Computed example of a mutant assay.
Amino acid sequence: MKLLKRPGPRPGHCGITLAAAPLGTVLLALPLGCAVLGPLLADAPASGVSAPYATSDAQHPLGTDGLGRDVLALLLHGGRSALGMALGAVAIAYLVGGIVGLLAASARRRWADELLIRPLDVLLPLPTLLVISVVAVGWRGSPLAIALAVAAVNVPPVARLVRSAALDAASSPVTEALRLQGESPIRIQLDHIARSVISPVAADIGTRVTLAVFLVGSANFLGLGLNPTAPDWAVSISRGREGLLLQPWAVLAPAAMLVMFTVGLNLLADRLLGRSRHRTQEVVR
């Protein structure tokens, strides 16, 4: 009688996972480096410095946009608003939604759980872009208001994710023992329950940031956010589409930055999840 062996990892799977780490780092480092260091490397782009839709030359390596501004200078100055608003919105969503989700999972009474989660359900069926549009019009395209609107529409799904992931840990015998020993609720939340949501949050954060980049970019692209002449990647794409055939770099360069950021972030998130799953399998064996 032949014994069945436990199936191991698929051939080539480990290599693909390892290769994703440096690729994701490079893809993520380029737009982040551009957003952080770009304004220090180039002067703010000014209108009319050259002919509109000029082709590449020694003075303007990527040409100029429809207002005669250097595309490379726009690229170096456009990342802070594009990525800053999205990352800030996701950070606020996880801060608020994470706290609400952990409190709901740890609630000893069902009514307390319902009181925390049900009000957030009101935001779930609302069209996201409609909420952002109303906020943008009401606050005249304020970047802070748009970031808060994007954070608000992401709080309910984040809270539900954290609550679902923390339910088992919050009702486990370990948690009950810690409560009987007189441990403070904050320490129980941080030392035990919060650890159970790390993997689900890591799996979600790449998608959540990608969605935030899309929403912030869509608001700026539709003219609901920043000033139409602002050096923002999404605004540059919106303005550059008018002369796409004359000056494709005005659209392709900022679009490539957004694509590299989202792809690189998701590759690194998948890499971290793969390492966590591999450690778990080793412990089980």
Rank of each mutant, 00 (worst) to 15 (best):
T262D: 01
L116E: 07
R109C: 04
G48F: 11
D168R: 13
D270E: 14
S172I: 09
P156D: 05
I188L: 14
A19W: 14
A19V: 08
K2M: 09
A35L: 04
P228M: 00
V137N: 04
L265D: 02
P9S: 06
V283L: 15
S199N: 12
R279P: 00
H60F: 07
S172Y: 02
L180A: 15
L148F: 10
L258R: 01
G66L: 13
L226C: 03
I16N: 08
A177T: 14
P231A: 00
S238H: 10
L124N: 04
N227I: 01
A256E: 02
P127N: 11
P31Q: 09
M85Q: 12
G84Y: 04
V26H: 03
N154W: 01
P125G: 11
I146N: 03
T175F: 00
G63D: 01
D168S: 14
E242V: 13
P125Q: 10
G217F: 03
G24A: 09
V162A: 05
R10P: 00
L120F: 11
V100S: 02
D57K: 05
V263S: 01
N266T: 04
V209S: 02
P173C: 10
L215Y: 07
L18N: 07
R275H: 12
I186A: 15
C34N: 14
K5C: 00
G206H: 03
T280K: 14
A105P: 13
P119W: 08
G243D: 10
V96Y: 03
L178I: 01
K5H: 13
N154L: 12
R277Q: 15
A203M: 06
V162T: 02
E176C: 01
G33S: 06
A255P: 00
R279F: 12
V174L: 14
A166M: 06
Y53Q: 05
I132Q: 02
G78K: 12
V251T: 08
G48I: 00
T210M: 07
G79W: 12
D70A: 03
A104W: 06
V259T: 07
V259P: 00
M257L: 11
G243E: 09
D191H: 14
D65I: 01
A149K: 06
A51W: 06
S47M: 14
Y53D: 07
V201T: 10
A145S: 13
N227R: 13
A203H: 03
G182K: 09
G240R: 05
A42D: 02
A177Y: 15
L148A: 15
G38P: 07
A152W: 03
S81T: 15
G223H: 08
A177F: 14
D113Y: 10
S47K: 10
L27Y: 12
S238Y: 05
G97R: 04
L273Q: 11
D113Q: 14
D204G: 13
S236I: 03
G12M: 09
L30H: 02
Q247L: 08
L115F: 11
V216T: 11
G79M: 10
P254K: 07
S184A: 15
R69A: 04
Q181R: 15
Q281Y: 11
A145D: 09
I193Q: 05
A91M: 13
R239V: 05
L32S: 12
R160T: 10
V251M: 04
S172G: 13
V201H: 01
T64P: 03
S50E: 05
G223E: 10
E176L: 12
S106H: 02
S172N: 04
A105G: 12
P11W: 07
T64R: 03
F214S: 06
L215K: 02
G12N: 07
V71H: 02
A203G: 14
R110L: 09
